[in-house]
Design a protein around this nucleic acid. Sequence first.
DNA 1: TTTCAGCGTAAAAATCGCGTTAAAAACTGC
DNA 2: GCAGTTTTTAACGCGATTTTTACGCTGAAA
Lengths: 241, 241
Amino acid sequence: MNDTGAVREKPRILIVDDEPQIRHFLRISLKTEGYELLEAENGETGLALCARHSPDLVILDLGLPDMDGTDLLEAVREWSAVPVIILSVRDRELEKVKALDLGANDYVTKPFGVDELLARVRTQLRNNRRDDGVSVDPSAIFDNGVLHIDLSMRKVSVNGKLIRLTPKEFTVLQALMLASGKIVTQSQLLKDIWGPTHVRDTHYLRVLIGRLRHKLGDDPTEQHYIQTEPGVGYRFVAVCD
Amino acid sequence: MNDTGAVREKPRILIVDDEPQIRHFLRISLKTEGYELLEAENGETGLALCARHSPDLVILDLGLPDMDGTDLLEAVREWSAVPVIILSVRDRELEKVKALDLGANDYVTKPFGVDELLARVRTQLRNNRRDDGVSVDPSAIFDNGVLHIDLSMRKVSVNGKLIRLTPKEFTVLQALMLASGKIVTQSQLLKDIWGPTHVRDTHYLRVLIGRLRHKLGDDPTEQHYIQTEPGVGYRFVAVCD
DNA sequence: TTTCAGCGTAAAAATCGCGTTAAAAACTGC
DNA sequence: GCAGTTTTTAACGCGATTTTTACGCTGAAA
């Protein structure tokens, strides 16, 4: 499968821990939050998985059967700057200092609260999104020969002719594009773009989507690009038939 | 004038804490490590110091006399991505989650080991070393036959005739030119040139851009060198149909 | 069939944002 | 302190954008 240009929706997290119950516990919590998971119960497979699947975050237990967790950390840091959160039963300050100075990004002592760990996961993932304000994947370009959308340049053209989009129009289109193929609910759009106090003002969306379709040359009877899911939301699709 | 962008040898750390003994303790430890220090004993001066001196790291106590630490964090996050380590006597998980989700980078509970704190400081500073791949040539020269801009010489001429630009005008033009073709957001310009406390004062930009266009001989009816992206920012483009 | 909720459209009304101007205030070098 | 320059402030017009309002259409349920 070729996923060039696709926006990876789920952050991918690698768990390296030999205790099955901890892995199980983490799996439940992280899956619920919508992360994609990889698991390893020893250092060797952890390293292999990390190299092969380039996760967005690694949660690493220091006590591993086959090697010391710090060795794994060192090995990973040879070639990757992926954020690493250390888990450890050891609360000794020296351990923490050593791990952090080896390149770990955070150090959480067992037992830990799941909400705190999840918040720290979010923090690391957030920090590693390199952008200035506008969080847009610069590789997010859509082009089917007729419609061309470049999110980073903020430019949209139909048949080579540039289209002027207003700020709100562009923001909505961007939200739909970044979830390409998937439904974006009305309340999601309203909350994100008009603010949480307007989640029920669906008429905003109706007229805006209408203008957007018109500008994109979207045939109302066919509805190529922006599809309506009645009562739910809208979906941006690349139609090529 | 603030001193953003300067290359400095010592990382600069801002401490915001109302307890003198904690400040004293941190001062000793951090100075020994070779950091440059700024100190504030309340939120207001903390915010001011942060805006004025753009530290590389902020250590923020949640319990401040004049405002809640989280408010300060929120205010700073309006315009800055500086790493923030929260100090707090409160060990409640909810507090940690709240602070981290507001944009804090780490949360350390008092009492803490000084070595651990120093390691966490190093971790944050290490993560935030900005090497933003795209190294722009500050000696860039633009020339389309009519307009000639030499950034290193700080000279601009139109039809061979030298144009006098004021310092701010030149700085804005330079910022736009170095991102040639791409949008520079209003808040980016305001933050970089007027300082982080003026991110919302868009009227500065309006009058300055107006003067700049006038001086560059930018015909408002035809194609602009400086294009406006309403509600977002400005973009410098080489005019060549 | 009737009813009705949800969507799309159109046009009017209100608001926002930009560009412009002019004058006041803050700097600058002398 | 003075004269010239630069920056900031304030106000206004205007076009673009957003919001409001009204109405027609459709498909599903009663």
